[in-house]
Amino acid sequence: MAILKTEQLTYTYSPGSPFEKTAVDHVDIEINKGEMIGVMGHTGSGKSTLIQHFNGLLRPTSGKVFLDGEDIWADKKKIRDVRFRVGLVFQYPEYQIFEETVFKDIAFGPKNMGLDEADIKKRVTETAYDIGLTEEMLSRSPFGLSGGQKRRVAIAGVMAMQPEVLILDEPAAGLDPAGRDAILSYIRKYHEKTGNTTLIVSHSMEDIASFADRILVMNSGKIFCFDETKKVFARSEEISQIGLDVPQITKVFDILKRKGIDLGREVYTVGYARDLILDVLKSKGGIG
């Protein structure tokens, strides 16, 4: 059963003006419950516009969005509930922090849901733990935290609403490598723990290659491809052509292939590459 589905979804900015631009063009997607999806696309490919339709922040110019089989715009008054069920973390979410304490900021979403104090407290502490914030930080002012910690507070603010679908727009952008790995692994753990549906938007394949079940590649408002991760990487050359970066290890194997050393399979993680090379060497009786 698809949890999220779009039908001929189209969105046009400033229709009828000279600045008219169709950012999302007749897109049909189905996302299944519990999937981890990577969304990729160049700047201006329409990926950010697309995800803002999933929780009803943008209303399609034409076409429909279904959440759990129901058209989210069927009843305009219920759009707020859709936003609780589909949590969206924007790019650089730390700029949305406003409360005096970390606790209060994470509690903003749950409070808007109308939950009672005890429930809010439970959710906030749980989520903080899940994203690697210490108990002691909860009573501190978020503005005194480091960039990476602020980012986690902001992500926790959306996670605490316990949405069925969690969408993160470039969650690792602008962080140092250690911070990036930490954020991504917390998101992954959270996904494994709760079994929710997660969409991660990124322009870097490196970030999502290792754990996305499927990858959606957008190009100029249309679906370029939407397939299992390894099938997407099988088209690494085409993907490079639309201006996206493929993982470094894939590039290495592409070059090897061009040089006549075809290892026959799509490689996009270093661990897999290692195993593959070891296998080949073993079969040739080199080492092992």
Binding site: Q52, L57, R80, F90, F98, F108, N112, V158
Partner: peptide, 29 residues
């Protein structure tokens, strides 16, 4: 505004009281 709406803030809908309260979540950032 979009980010706070995503967290359920009522900024362009809801009662005047709710809206005024939620405005803080926009002004501070």
């Amino acid at each position: 505004i979009s980010a706070q709406k995503a967290r359920g803030a009522s900024i362009d809908s809801g009662t005047l009281r709710e809206r005024a309260g939620n405005l803080i979540s926009v002004i501070v950032p």
